[in-house]
Amino acid sequence: MQVESFDIAGIKLLVPRHIGDERGYFAETFREDVFLKECSDVKFVQDNESRSVRAGTIRGLHFQSEPHAQGKLVRCTAGALFDVAVDIREGSPTYGQWVGEVLTPDNGKQLWVPAGFAHGFCTLEPDTVISYKVTGYYNAECDKGLRWDDPAIGIRWPEIADSETLSPKDRIQPMLADLPAYFTWER
């Protein structure tokens, strides 16, 4: 498994090796030893999955605050998606900056989004399925969000992104400038 870093500390891209032939491929999609060495010493407690029927569906930007913060290891199991992580760690040199990656079953890429980042995505194909492991259980009181199209962040969403697909909750998320300091950057 190949692990790549970004200019934003903490986020990693995991690219499993596909061993294939005319029948298809085999891939190790998670190895605890590699993850612990290259990403983080965390324990995954739950696997989540969501399906979006329409291409252009936007979900996010979401995160959970302390004491129920979540890290997420995200992959696409059907269709295709543009996956995004935004640094919301107060004091971070990359505060408000973002990373985006196209995830598909064929490329096998997985995005590690640690606690302290907001996460969201836009589906690129109909019937896209996203699957992700999380490091904390869902907690409604700690369920928070950030405005998906905040110009201060400047995410370059795919042209297909359709704001009409936003959930009622995602339509009223705060801008980065109005977001309380839920996380503090630690060197």
Rank of each mutant, 00 (worst) to 15 (best):
V34G: 02
F35I: 00
C39H: 01
C39S: 06
S40L: 10
S40F: 05
V42E: 14
K43G: 13
K43W: 15
Q46S: 15
Q46E: 15
N48A: 13
E49Y: 04
E49F: 08
V53T: 12
A55C: 10
G56K: 00
T57I: 06
T57D: 07
R59Q: 08
R59K: 14
R59Y: 09
L61S: 03
H62E: 07
F63R: 05
E66L: 13
P67C: 12
P67G: 09
H68A: 15
H68G: 05
Q70F: 15
Q70A: 11
V74Q: 06
R75C: 11
R75E: 03
C76L: 10
T77R: 09
A78G: 10
A80T: 05
L81M: 13
D87S: 03
R89F: 01
E90G: 13
S92G: 11
S92A: 11
P93Y: 12
T94L: 01
T94E: 04
Q97C: 14
V99H: 01
V99M: 07
D106Y: 10
K109M: 15
L111W: 07
W112D: 03
V113C: 09
V113R: 01
P114G: 08
P114L: 00
A115N: 05
F121W: 10
L124E: 06
E125P: 07
D127S: 14
S131E: 14
K133P: 06
K133G: 01
Y137L: 12
N139T: 13
N139P: 09
K144Y: 02
